[in-house]
């Protein structure tokens, strides 16, 4: 299953993606997070040390988190700000931490948190607005590294066909 989290108000983007994925017979699940109540991560660490795997913030993010553990791929659609994802997009990543445990291990030559679940979802990013694309590519690879998965790439919202080509 391909999980798509659209943090923008541009529902035309997800509509177009759905057209392409339906035509290709790709199973998707889309969250229009731009209309959902999703807070920032407050860094409380409760999801690691107090209520393992459960975020202390009770808002609409929990339903997304519950679907993430079944996804083969996670795609985030975000507006940009100051050359990077805007805060709505970044919040989706910051709140992913319950998928990791507090425990540590080395993967290659770097420390990583041990994943809480068996499934590993690869990460793709679609952005709307001005940004440093090379930097976003680098950042997305680092995100994937943290979850023992692969980066599927970073795409401008005008490159939806190219993005969907990476969905399976």
């Amino acid at each position: 299953m391909i999980l798509i989290v659209n943090t923008t108000s541009e529902t035309a983007v997800t509509k177009k993606i759905k057209e392409y994925t339906d035509a290709a017979g790709i199973e998707t699940e889309i969250f229009e997070a731009g209309e959902m109540d999703i807070s920032h991560c407050i860094g409380c660490n409760h999801c690691w040390l107090k209520t393992p795997g459960v975020c202390a913030i009770k808002d609409d993010y929990e339903i997304i988190l519950k679907r993430m553990i079944h996804a083969d791929q996670i795609w985030v659609i975000s507006d940009t700000a100051l050359g990077f994802l805007n805060h709505r997009g970044k919040n989706i990543y910051d709140r992913i931490l319950p998928l990791a445990t507090m425990y540590l291990q080395f993967k290659g030559d770097q420390m990583r948190h041990i994943a809480r679940y068996d499934k590993r979802a690869d990460f793709g990013l679609i952005y709307i607005g001005d940004c440093d694309r090379d930097y976003l590519e680098r950042w997305n690879k680092r995100v994937a590294l943290n979850f023992e998965s692969e980066s599927l790439g970073v795409f401008d919202h005008k490159e939806l066909k190219e993005a969907v080509a990476c969905m399976y």
């Binding site: 040390l49 393992p52 795997g53 519950k66 507090m102 425990y103």
Partner: peptide
Amino acid sequence: AGRKSFDKAAKSWGCTLPLDYRPYD
């Protein structure tokens, strides 16, 4: 020792579950 120290910290925070617990399985 690392696991033990995290388990100890969690206990002091009132955690009663294993730290690799899977609430959504």
